Computed example of a mutant assay.
Amino acid sequence: MIDKISSTFGSWPILKQIEKNNPERRFITLSSTSIHNDFQLLDVSGKPSVFANPLIYQIKFHTGNFVWNGFYRFSFMTLSKEEIKVLDAKIAQLATPSRLPLGLNDLFVLQPQNHFNERIILTIWQLDSDYAIWRRSKSFSPFKIYSDSGAYDYHDSNYTAYQLHSLQS
Score class of each variant (00 low, 15 high):
residue 85 K to E: 10
residue 149 S to E: 11
residue 129 S to K: 12
residue 85 K to L: 14
residue 70 G to M: 08
residue 115 H to G: 00
residue 25 R to C: 05
residue 133 I to D: 07
residue 72 Y to H: 13
residue 118 E to D: 14
residue 113 Q to H: 07
residue 86 V to G: 01
residue 61 F to M: 13
residue 32 S to F: 05
residue 34 S to Y: 08
residue 59 I to S: 06
residue 54 P to Y: 01
residue 155 H to Y: 14
residue 76 F to E: 02
residue 9 F to T: 10
residue 13 P to W: 02
residue 37 N to H: 13
residue 126 Q to I: 10
residue 69 N to H: 08
residue 60 K to M: 12
residue 128 D to K: 09
residue 48 P to M: 12
residue 154 Y to N: 03
residue 49 S to H: 06
residue 168 Q to E: 12
residue 39 F to N: 00
residue 119 R to E: 02
residue 27 F to S: 03
residue 118 E to S: 08
residue 103 G to D: 05
residue 133 I to Q: 11
residue 137 S to F: 07
residue 23 P to R: 15
residue 84 I to A: 04
residue 141 S to L: 15
residue 27 F to V: 09
residue 152 Y to R: 03
residue 138 K to C: 02
residue 113 Q to L: 15
residue 31 S to A: 13
residue 1 M to Q: 06
residue 168 Q to Y: 08
residue 114 N to S: 12
residue 112 P to A: 11
residue 93 Q to S: 07
residue 24 E to M: 08
residue 24 E to V: 03
residue 121 I to T: 04
residue 54 P to F: 08
residue 140 F to K: 05
residue 42 L to W: 13
residue 91 I to N: 02
residue 32 S to I: 04
residue 131 Y to G: 00
residue 153 D to H: 11
residue 121 I to M: 09
residue 79 L to G: 03
residue 99 R to Y: 06
residue 97 P to C: 05
residue 83 E to S: 02
residue 24 E to G: 09
residue 46 G to H: 07
residue 128 D to F: 04
residue 83 E to N: 06
residue 23 P to S: 11
residue 17 Q to C: 04
residue 150 G to Y: 09
residue 33 T to F: 04
residue 10 G to D: 01
residue 3 D to P: 00
residue 29 T to I: 13
residue 136 R to K: 15
residue 138 K to Y: 06
residue 16 K to W: 01
residue 50 V to I: 15
residue 95 A to L: 09
residue 23 P to H: 07
residue 39 F to G: 00
residue 120 I to D: 02
residue 127 L to D: 10
residue 17 Q to D: 12
residue 167 L to Q: 11
residue 39 F to H: 05
residue 143 F to A: 06
residue 84 I to H: 01
residue 8 T to Y: 04
residue 36 H to G: 02
residue 137 S to I: 05
residue 92 A to T: 05
residue 82 E to K: 13
residue 82 E to H: 07
residue 108 F to H: 09
residue 67 V to I: 14
residue 92 A to R: 13
residue 64 G to K: 06
residue 135 R to P: 00
residue 160 T to I: 15
residue 85 K to Q: 12
residue 52 A to K: 15
residue 88 D to V: 04
residue 105 N to F: 10
residue 84 I to L: 09
residue 15 L to F: 05
residue 135 R to S: 06
residue 75 S to N: 13
residue 166 S to G: 07
residue 136 R to T: 10
residue 34 S to C: 04
residue 66 F to A: 11
residue 151 A to G: 06
residue 160 T to L: 10
residue 89 A to V: 04
residue 52 A to W: 05
residue 85 K to F: 05
residue 19 E to D: 04
residue 89 A to I: 07
residue 7 S to H: 01
residue 117 N to L: 10
residue 163 Q to E: 13
residue 75 S to C: 08
residue 48 P to S: 11
residue 99 R to I: 01
residue 51 F to H: 11
residue 104 L to R: 06
residue 85 K to D: 09
residue 85 K to W: 03
residue 100 L to D: 00
residue 9 F to I: 10
